[in-house]
């Protein structure tokens, strides 16, 4: 949307960060893998990918965690998909006691809420944010358990809210990065960030 050259970080501790980097390339935006706090200085926005949220939380250095929280507080847009949505939550149900999330959105989530892998599924999810319906892949996906009033619902699947936005923070319970449809990434890139 914006014509200014942007660099978008993708948390690259574990998970499908390669697919998010490829999605950014398809959107003609430079993606930067983020593993340490210093890596974050070079980017204007951040994607928290899919993967195992417990593993990512375990690998996230305290300095990186603080930097993400500070940059997000200063207005950096953040997108979380699946495990990334779990990391952005304020509260995690059925998580692990040592799994302290980033608390970037006023939401509660339940991990693996649809059941085990044989209950993972593909579906089409419609949202005004992307001007229609797009394929969505739900893999051991989380569900929203609660949210504050200023969290905006962007999409539903059945009786579940599966896409939400709070300010310039976007969380998806599914994986748009596993499909060739780039509209969710384009929507994220259209969210305004901090002025640096």
């Amino acid at each position: 949307m914006s014509s200014t050259r942007r660099r978008v970080g993708v948390l690259a501790l574990q998970g499908d960060f390669r697919e998010h980097l490829a999605a950014l390339r398809a959107c003609e935006v430079e993606g930067v893998p983020i593993r340490l706090a210093a890596d974050l200085e070079a980017v204007d926005a951040l994607i928290l990918p899919g993967g195992e949220s417990t593993t990512m939380a375990h690998l996230m250095e305290p300095t990186l965690k603080q930097s993400i929280q500070q940059r997000a507080a200063a207005g950096m847009p953040v997108l979380g998909t699946c495990a990334g949505m779990i990391l952005m939550a304020r509260e995690i149900a059925d998580g692990r006691p040592d799994q302290e999330p980033l608390k970037l959105m006023d939401i509660g989530v339940r991990r693996n809420a649809y059941g085990r892998q044989i209950d993972s599924f593909e579906a089409d999810v419609a949202s005004p944010a992307i001007g229609g319906s797009a394929p969505a892949v739900f893999i051991r996906a989380p569900q929203l358990t609660q949210h504050s009033p200023d969290v905006e619902e962007l999409a539903r699947h059945g009786d579940q809210i599966v896409a939400i936005k709070q300010g310039n923070r976007l969380a998806l319970a599914f994986h748009p990065e596993l499909t060739p449809d780039r509209r969710w990434h384009q929507y994220f890139l259209s969210l305004n960030g901090e002025t640096r």
């Binding site: 998970g15 390669r18 899919g50 195992e52 495990a83 059941g115 892998q117 993972s120 579906a123």
Partner: peptide
């Protein structure tokens, strides 16, 4: 868990869903 409210357009056990979990395990 969904209590008998399985959505008609949910496609389970597809190739994308099977290969997709492996994608999530990468780097681990």
């Amino acid at each position: 868990m969904t209590e008998g409210s399985e959505k008609v357009n949910d496609r389970k056990g597809t190739w994308k869903v099977k290969a997709g979990l492996a994608e999530m395990l990468k780097g681990g």
